[in-house]
Nucleic acid binder design. Sequence first.
DNA 1: ATTCGACTATTTTAGTTATTTAATCGAAAA
DNA 2: TTTTCGATTAAATAACTAAAATAGTCGAAT
Lengths: 194, 194
Amino acid sequence: MIDRAERKTFILEIAQNLFAKFGLAKTTIDDIAKKARMGKASIYYYFKSKESIFQEVIDKEGRTLQDKILVAVNTEKSPQEKMQAYFITRMVALKDLINYYSALRDEYLDHYSFVTKARQSFDVFETTLISNILQEGIQSGDFKVENAALAAEAILAALKGFEFQWTIEIPAEQIETNINTLLKILFKGIEKRS
Amino acid sequence: MIDRAERKTFILEIAQNLFAKFGLAKTTIDDIAKKARMGKASIYYYFKSKESIFQEVIDKEGRTLQDKILVAVNTEKSPQEKMQAYFITRMVALKDLINYYSALRDEYLDHYSFVTKARQSFDVFETTLISNILQEGIQSGDFKVENAALAAEAILAALKGFEFQWTIEIPAEQIETNINTLLKILFKGIEKRS
DNA sequence: ATTCGACTATTTTAGTTATTTAATCGAAAA
DNA sequence: TTTTCGATTAAATAACTAAAATAGTCGAAT
């Protein structure tokens, strides 16, 4: 029992890579075992099932994403900068967390309850975060929003729309440019100020 | 050759209903023929294939949607009202055009080239329309946007994000309320004006 | 405590056959 | 001549089976 956790992490990282490359279905326990230079049975010494390995990978990537976002947001001071940090970090990070991303999107994973839970949990996380930033901005006098909760939903829906277009097709650098255009509209609106 | 077009329309409407209820795969030519009180072969007298019937249904619904949007937009005077008319008409109308909607979304229809074309064509239509409204607003002094084309893309991506959430889950009436919240953010932004 | 080889039970896949459906054709009706 | 339809063919789909691959177990070895 010296470093069971370490060993689990080791296996998890290998599984993470294989899942990212081949997807859940095409990755076999034998694949994972071979790459870890172990017998298949040894994998089962650490994990209950293939499903549970995938679940841990998803959970891990989810935590990573949330951590990254929170760190990025908390580094900033003004609500505007926080919102910007959130937008950009979310989009750029999601590109790398392929398993998590596919768990959020792929329909054929719907029947895994932990996938549904991960989605909901992340949704709550995002809605709450946006809502908090908005409210902070309202209190500090930076923002003026009637219904912060509904606005948060609207902003999240917009982000998801972009995610769909961009995460796949567009290079990471351009994301930043486009996000900033979006942010300017979000902050200033499109109406001319008199 | 008296009213071949009329007869085609008749069949098309029946097909449209069946496709909407059961989807492309589950609707057979016999189903269409029976409901039209014809022999199956008669259907083929008017249409080349099942695929072509579906294509015409899609095209028809696409035109309907575009017409509705254009009429709604052109009825309005100010760019703000035009944008509002566009948002609401798009969302409400799309709910009823089930076949067109599923053609825009369902992956398993990807391999039909006419589906891909319909998507692209509608995308161009929307981007152009938004861009036009923006530019009109800029000229009239109502709007202030740096890059109208990029802004149009951003707005469309946001709309698509909503579409995904709403078209299925939310009653038509509430769409209007939520759209108006979105519009307010789009017009005014979230920053407090000093 | 950890690893693994050998084993079993499920699940997938590949290949076959039966059934359904799309599409054609020629004759008949209008 | 235009339209309809029954009968037929061709193609696609579904249902089934056998073979292969894979998930998961167990007891012995380290």
